[in-house]
Simulated assay, not measured.
Amino acid sequence: MTAQPDRPAVTGLVPPVTVGEAVRSDPVVRYSAAILCGIVVIASLDLAQVFFAPVFLSVVVGTIFGLPMERLSRLGVPSWLSAGGMVLVFIALILTAGAAFVVPLSDWLDRLPLIWSRLQAQLVSWQGFFSSVASLQEDLRSAMGQKGGMQVSVDDNSAVESVFYFAPAFMAQVVLFLASLYFFLLTRPHLRRAALQLSPDSEGRRCIVTAFRTIEARLSTYLISISVINAGLGVAVALTMWLLDVPSPLLWGMLAGVLNYVVYLGPAIMVLVMSGIGLATGYTAVEILTPPLAYLVLNLIEAQFVTPTVLGRTMTLNPFAVFLAIAFWIWLWGPIGGFIAVPLLLVVVSVLEIINNTAQSEEPGRSEAEPEAGASH
């Protein structure tokens, strides 16, 4: 056997880099990975809406019942019994509210043709304006070389098919929501203990305990305060509509309180509803505009004075961030997303504040340790 000659060492080769090292060292790779992870999470939430939406809603609603659950446990009530009692109380509240809505709403649904005819009568005076707009539209189409108009085809069976298609999915979401609410209330202490086991050191456990307490306290305070505020707004709207001699004032008060949970969008819908009520009950411009304007005044007082005073500065969020959160979650999950948007934003803000406070608390320790290290040398 002949001996192989020694190969010269190859210099200048870059050692292999793992994925983790590339993500940590290169900011472009790090940000790109974060963007891709965000897209994957959003797509997963969209595709699994039937599962995630009721589960997230159960967590938000279950936070309201956290304080009563703790008081019942201190009194010696078994957790399974108190959790089942809270779920039954919630079901009773929903059924009571639904029964209060059904009868007056059915009456007003019968008045929809009258509201539509009144609206058409009011639009007669705007006929000249709409004619000028239509002629301008035709001129623009002619200038752009477009002909014809938009054609709409209506399938008479679409509504029935939609009901039969979405009813099973809706019932499945309701069952999943109630089951998630029960098990969330039942296992809240176990979830906290499981989270504590994720951290091996005492400092990490202290941060986890602080995060749990802060988030639960803020969420429960926010949801209970908003519920009280919305109930007060509903009472004020009902009394105002009763003084204005608007039919079914209790219905409009309850509707105002429920819609006010969805910030911005709920009051806008309520203004449209009250405008329709004005068209159905009023004959002059003042009578038609009085119900929506009265609601706008009450909503302005609630949004600008009552809510900031009750919640305080610690619970005040950036209006632009609130608007983006509501727009995003409504786009993703519809009405459920609009309800949980602000609580989820409050959770994110609380977590960021805890992380920031923890980082700031560690900085003085580092700054004091550095001079000692230098003195030892």
Rank of each mutant, 00 (worst) to 15 (best):
N357G: 10
I277H: 00
S117N: 14
L181I: 08
S248L: 06
A97F: 14
P371M: 08
G312D: 05
S79L: 09
A359W: 14
H377M: 08
L298F: 08
D26Y: 11
H190Q: 13
V102W: 12
L243N: 05
G337Y: 03
Q122M: 04
V154E: 02
I35W: 04
D245Y: 04
F164H: 11
S367Y: 10
L259C: 05
L114Y: 12
Y165W: 05
S227E: 01
V50H: 12
L243C: 13
I288W: 01
V29L: 15
A172G: 14
I115Q: 08
R206N: 13
P68G: 02
A268N: 05
L255N: 01
I91Q: 09
T358S: 15
I288P: 00
P308A: 03
I64R: 03
F51P: 02
L176E: 03
L67D: 09
V89I: 11
T290M: 04
T210C: 07
I330D: 03
V347E: 10
C37I: 13
I229K: 01
I336Q: 00
S220C: 09
V23I: 15
E372T: 11
L243D: 06
A341R: 03
F212Y: 13
R111M: 07
G312H: 04
I39F: 13
C37P: 02
A172E: 12
A92D: 08
T240E: 07
V14H: 15
L233D: 04
Y222D: 13
V29S: 10
V60C: 08
L293W: 03
V59C: 06
I355F: 13
